[in-house]
Nucleic acid binder design. Structure first.
Lengths: 217, 217, 217, 217
DNA sequence: TATGAATGAGGCTTCATTCAT
DNA sequence: GATGAATGAAGCCTCATTCAT
C-alpha cells in the first residue's frame, strides 16, 4: 500500500492517537472497498479492520459515501504524484533515448499496476453510474498525466529526438500501448503482474512507439 | 441493445409467453445490472422492468447470482461473435490495405463501444473479486478475438503486406491503440463515443500501427 | 406404513388412476408431514413425492390445511381400528391370564410404536394450538380405546380374574404403564423401539398391573 | 412463567437495559414459540412482544434457531431444577409414607403441568426431526429426574418401606402413572389441569404404585 | 472522543395458491 | 382431470445509521 493511506507511524505519542485512527480507518476502508466494492463493503468490516468501533467511523467521516470519496481522493492524489514523478524522468539527457523510453515505460507500467491503482480503477468503473462526479476526479488525473507526458514528448520532438506531429495523440498512444498490454495480462486488474512481464510489455511498447515516432522513422 | 438479449426467434411452438418472458427478464436484468451494478441492482426492479412478478424471476433463474452469470454469458457470446465478424474482414483483397485497416479498426472500436460491451466491462471489473470465475469467461473472449486478429495479421505478413515478427504482440498492440483511445474519451465506459470520434481514433491507431508495421517500414 | 395410506394396488387398470393418485398423494403427504411437520412441509415436496404436479394436489384437496386434516383423519382411523382389534383379544378364555395381559400389552405397545402412530402424535402435539379441533379427533380415539379396554377389564373383574374398582382408571393406568415405558425409550417418538424392548416393557407393565389388580391381590 | 426466563437478578453494574432486554427477549420468544411452534413463530412477533426492534433480537441471538435453542435450554434447566427439588422430598422421615408418596406425586404432577413444561414438551416433540440434538437435552433432563427418583426409591426399599427389585423400573412406572393420567386430561398439553384433578391423579397413581410396591405387598 | 447497543428500512428468497392450456 | 408457469404475500436477515454513556 502506498504512503497515502499508511498509518503515520512517526511518533506514536498520545496526542497523535486521533490522527493514527483516522489513518487506520482510511487504510482499512481502502482495503475493504478494494476487496468488496462500494456496495458490498460493510462499515462494520471497515471498523473491525481499523480496530475501532463502528460509531467512531461515523464520528470521523459522517457516512459511508463520504468515507468512500475520501479514499478515492487520497488514492488519486497518490497515483497522480507517482505518475508525474515518473514522467519527469523522460528527458533526453544525452544518453540513449530508447533506453530512457523503455525505462519510463516500465515505471509507468508499474504505477499502473500498483495495487492501489488497480483497485482505484475497479472502484471507479464499478461505481461510475452511482458517483458520476468521481469520473471528474480520475479524468483530471489522467489528463494531467497525459498532458505532462505530451509536454515531454513535444520537447523531445522539438529537440529532434522524435518525430511527432501531435504530442497529445502520441502520449495517449504510448500510454495505450503500455496499459493495453497490462490489461491483457492482469485479469481485469485482479492480478499483480510481475516486474519481469512489465519489462517485456514496456519494451514492446517502447519498440513500437519508437518505430512509429522514432528519429529514424 | 444487441441481439443477444432480444427474442431469439425460435418456433412459436411452445407457449409463446415462456420464451418471451425469459428474454424479457434477461434484457431487464442487463439493463438494471448495467445501471446499478450487481450489488445495488434490486431483483424487484428487474422484475418490474421485465413486467413479471419477482417470483417468476426466481422460478426461471434460481437466484440473483445465477441471473447475473447468465446475463454476463449472453453478453459475452454476443460480443465475441460481433468482434470475430469484424476481424474476418481484415483481408488484403487487392484493395488499399490502409483503408481496410482503418475500416476494421473503426468497426472494432464500435464493438468496443457498444452499450453492452461497455456495461459488460464495467460489471466484470466491479465484480471480479466476488465472481472470479467470470474472469475466465471474459479472458476467453479477449483471447479468441486477439487470436483471430493475430491470425489475420500473420497472413498479411506472410503475404508481404505487413512486416510483423510477433503477430500476437502486434494484434494486442493494435487493439491497445484502439481501446486506449476510446477509454480516454468514454469516461470509464460511461459515455457513448460518437462515430465521428471513433473514426478519428481508429484512423490514428491505424496510422501508428502502419507506421510501425507497414510494408514500407 | 399401514394400510390406510397405502396405494390400493388392487387393479392397476386405467380407470383407477385417479384413486391411485389420490392414495399416492395422501401417502406422500403423510411422509412429508411426518418428516417436516405441518408448517415446514412444502406442498411441492408432497407433490414430488407423489409424482404428480403441484396443481393436482390442489385439484384434489383444495388446500394444504384440508390435506393435513385428511391425513390426520386417515391415520386416526387406522390407529383406532388397530388398537380396538388388540383390545378385543383381552379375554380370559380359560388360559393363563398373565400371559394374555402380557400379550395384549405387547400388541398395544406395538400399535403405540407404529411409525404412523408416532408421527400422528408428534403432528398433533405440534399443531394443537393451530388446529384445536384436531384434539377432538385424537381425544375421541383415545377415549374409545380406553373405553374398550375398560370394558374388558370390567368383565374380567366381574369374572373374578381381576380386582378392579374403577375399570376406567385401571385401563388408563395400564395404558400409562405401557406408554410411559415406551416414551422413555423412543426419544420422543423419533426412534423405532425394537420388539425385544417392547416385550420387556410390556412384561414389566403387566407385572406391575397384575401386582396391583391381580386376583391374588 | 417460571423463573428461568425472568430477570436473573445480577448486579446492576452493567447498563441495566442490556440484561433486561435479553431476558425480555427470551421470555417473549418462549411465549411466541409456545403459542405457534418454531416454524410458525415470527421473529417480528417475538421482537414486538419483547418491545425491541427485530434487529436487536438478531444482535443478541444471531438467528431464530439459536434463539430457539436458548429458550429450550433455559426451560430445560428450570424444569430439571424444579423436579429435582420435588424428588428430594421423597424421604421416609418416620411419618406416613403413603402421604409422602401422594404429596410427591402431586408435586411432580404439578411440575409436569407447568405451562413451561407442557410447552417445552410440545416444542420438542414438534421439532425433534429438525433439531435432533435437542432430544439429547431433554433426554438428559428426564434421565436425571428418573435417576434421582430411583435413588430415593432404592433407599426406601433398603429401609424396608417399599418392596422394589428394580428401582429404575419402579421410578419409571411411578412417573408413567402420573404423566399418563395427566396426558389423558390435558388435551396434549393444551390445557392447564387444575390442582384438584392433579390430586386425584396423584392419589390414584400413589395407590396403584403402593399396591404394587408397598411394604405389605 | 470512543463506544456498545439499538433500530428502521429494505433486500433476497420462499411458498401456498391460482391460471391457462 | 393434469400440468407448468405465474404470482402476491410474507419471512428471515442485514446494514447504515443514531443514541446514550
Amino acid at each position: 500500500m502506498s504512503a497515502a493511506l499508511k498509518s503515520s507511524r512517526e511518533r506514536p505519542s498520545t496526542p497523535r492517537g486521533r490522527i493514527d485512527k483516522q489513518q487506520a480507518m482510511l487504510a482499512a476502508a481502502f482495503t475493504v472497498f478494494a476487496r468488496a466494492g462500494y456496495a458490498q463493503a460493510r462499515v462494520d468490516e471497515i471498523a473491525a479492520e481499523a480496530k475501532v468501533a463502528k460509531a467512531t467511523v461515523y464520528n470521523h467521516f459522517g457516512d459511508k459515501e463520504t468515507l468512500f470519496r475520501q479514499v478515492v481522493q487520497a488514492l488519486s492524489d497518490t497515483a497522480l504524484a507517482a505518475n508525474l514523478a515518473v514522467v519527469a524522468r523522460l528527458v533526453d539527457d544525452g544518453g540513449d533515448l530508447p533506453t530512457v523510453v523503455r525505462e519510463v515505460g516500465f515505471r509507468l507500467a508499474r504505477c499502473y499496476c500498483e495495487e492501489e491503482s488497480r483497485a482505484l480503477r475497479r472502484l471507479i468503473a464499478a461505481e461510475a453510474p452511482q458517483f458520476p462526479d468521481l469520473l471528474d476526479v480520475v479524468d483530471d488525473v489522467s489528463r494531467q498525466i497525459a498532458q505532462a507526458l505530451a509536454d515531454r514528448l513535444a520537447r523531445l520532438s522539438l529537440a529532434g529526438s522524435l518525430q511527432i506531429d501531435d504530442p497529445e495523440l502520441a502520449a495517449m498512444q504510448f500510454a495505450a500501448l503500455l496499459t493495453g498490454g497490462i490489461d491483457a495480462r492482469s485479469r481485469v486488474g485482479t492480478r499483480q503482474v510481475p516486474d519481469a512481464e512489465l519489462h517485456v510489455i514496456a519494451d514492446a511498447a517502447a519498440a513500437t512507439f519508437l518505430k512509429a515516432f522514432g528519429e529514424q522513422a
